[in-house]
Nucleic acid binder design. Structure first.
Lengths: 335, 335
DNA sequence: ATGAAAGCGCTAACAG
DNA sequence: CTGTTAGCGCTTTCAT
């Protein structure tokens, strides 16, 4: 146990070289003789030297920390969505040796990610103000999963409408006509877009839009139950298929349907959205729309890093297309 | 849009004072005349000046970032446990103006939280090596939710055995004799301790321990189902009450019991562990053992901060006692 | 109450 | 290939 932390000076002294040379081996500069390099490495190991990151950042004039701000609304962490984003961002940061500064925000509260070279906003529901402020401070931003058309900010989002259309098309392709939907929160962009995709999907298949086949949910399991309840109350006019705006809701619908004695997919087809792995382990595996959440998050870090590092200048504006995953929860309408 | 970021020099120039004075107002030192303070504040606002955190840290010689390392095993984020820890740590960091550096670890991989004044380990299942390494580097550590007796490290943990005893005592108090348990993963300390608490709880009430009333689960919903399945196969000898090592499993047991036509709590009493809010919204609200997870996480940050700041020197070794929360999922045995 | 000056630990020209 | 020398932006004695 040494008393003090070793500094670059101590290393230089022990290795019998200048601090510059030490700095060079730390930063993997090629022009160091093998002999010196070896000595420096020995000294580093011996003294258990770790460069002081603050000093490095200060000297380099750049900041290798990425801030991740997530909305703090209750339940956020229970969404598969949030988790995948965190995993993806975390993974990329690790690979690129970036610090990940995590920040759960109230939305309206001013941001305090003092020490971050760039910031990723995992959602924009309530943080418009924060994004504007960050932008104004000249800190590079990246918005995930929300296309922001009226702000000059980088984003990577998913084509939610397209995904919903794919879900409806799949159902229609099986022969369903009475296709209902339980929407996600309509104040969220994803909820809104998925609902619009549902409608346009119907249109594309020349199917009529029926107001009573819509239940406005909010991504909660509770609302999914209520949605199915409403649909079942329609009696013989009840839908034969349901597009749920999230796997979580889809799974709950399946559970509830079974409680009510309906067989899935025989009596009711269900498709979800997310590709939440839970959908694999349910009694009936779930047909769903896969979003490349993890990849999206990783990519956000990469792009942001390129921007902060000055390697990229143009705006990043990507829209990723989701993918239909067919499993067991859909069948041709029973009768 | 200014071209460069304003530095303390710019502020000093505009305010017509020395940089020292600017530094003083930034750090809320009292001895600054009202006039100067006002001028400096004006300049700060006008130039949109933000102190460079790296420079501050370097000059102050301390590091106000806390690292949070969590095990990266699949599903970690779906546990109520992990979420509450993150929330609590996040909240405390925010209140104390500390950066929260988030790190999902592989356990065996060497830690790379270069820039952190102190580190919180949210679990110790596989990071013993990392903890030892961190300790060896002289970085203050804090282990959450695991009592580590063979390592000289600070920890705040929960008395899992005591909690399990409380659950069993409650059930026994209602008159149950055939009390089963679905354990958590027995390789985890919590799983182990809760199981031991189950056994000692039985002992305290002079109830016999019955091997066939034990199902070794792993905290997954799947294992909970399997556990109940096993118990039901016992026919008329089946238990009348089940202590599940997590709310998640308890909830799944209730669902599955209902699917099998059993009424809860009439035909089967269930008590969980965690006080997961989901337990409130299920068809039958869940009686459970409340762990002060959020508080524990917050406290960990506080203590760690005190240690890093030199305000605390002795080791922190707290064991928190959980609490029984009685709701609707238990009743006197039916017959 | 205020400022000058000396670092904090490291990087990056610039010479050699 | 290596060392010298300025800083990076801020805090902190120490005088005044």
């Amino acid at each position: 146990m040494s008393t003090k932390k070793a500094s670059i000076n101590d290393v230089a002294k022990r290795a019998g070289v200048s601090i510059t040379t030490v700095s060079r081996v730390i930063n993997n500069v090629a022009s160091v003789s093998d002999k010196n390099r070896a000595q420096v490495e020995e000294a580093i190991a011996h003294l258990n030297f770790k460069p002081n990151v603050s000093a490095q950042r200060l000297a380099k004039g750049l900041n290798t920390a990425v801030g991740l701000v997530m909305p703090g609304y209750p339940g956020i962490f229970h969404s598969f969505y949030a988790i995948e984003i965190i995993r993806g961002v975390g993974h990329a940061c690790e690979a690129l040796h970036l610090d990940l500064i995590f920040h759960i925000t109230k939305g309206y509260a001013p941001l305090n990610i003092s020490n971050a070279g760039g910031i990723i906003f995992a959602d924009i529901i309530e943080n418009r103000k924060q994004i504007e402020a960050t932008l104004a401070e000249g800190i590079p931003c990246m918005v995930i999963n929300n296309r922001v058309d009226d702000l000059k900010v980088n984003f990577i989002a998913i084509d939610n409408a397209k995904g919903a259309e794919m879900a409806v098309a799949h159902l229609a392709g099986l022969g369903h006509v009475k296709i209902a939907t339980v929407t996600g929160g309509l104040q969220t962009q994803s909820g809104q877009h998925r609902f619009e995709g549902y409608k346009s999907g119907l249109g594309q298949k020349k199917l009529p839009f029926n107001e009573s086949y819509v239940y406005e949910g909010d991504y909660s399991r509770r609302s999914a139950r209520q949605g199915l309840e409403k649909f079942l109350s329609l009696g013989k006019d009840r839908p034969t298929a349901i597009f749920a705006a999230s796997d979580d809701m889809a799974l709950e619908i399946i559970n509830f349907a079974m409680e009510r004695g309906l067989k899935v997919p025989k009596d009711l087809s269900v498709v979800g959205f997310d590709d939440n792995p839970a959908g694999l382990y349910s009694s009936v595996s779930l047909t769903t729309i896969r979003q490349p959440l993890f990849k999206m998050a990783e990519e956000a870090v990469r792009q942001l890093n390129a921007i902060v590092g000055g390697r990229r200048h143009s705006a990043v504006q990507q829209i990723l297309v989701p993918e239909l995953v067919v499993r067991e929860s859909c069948a041709v309408p029973g009768v």
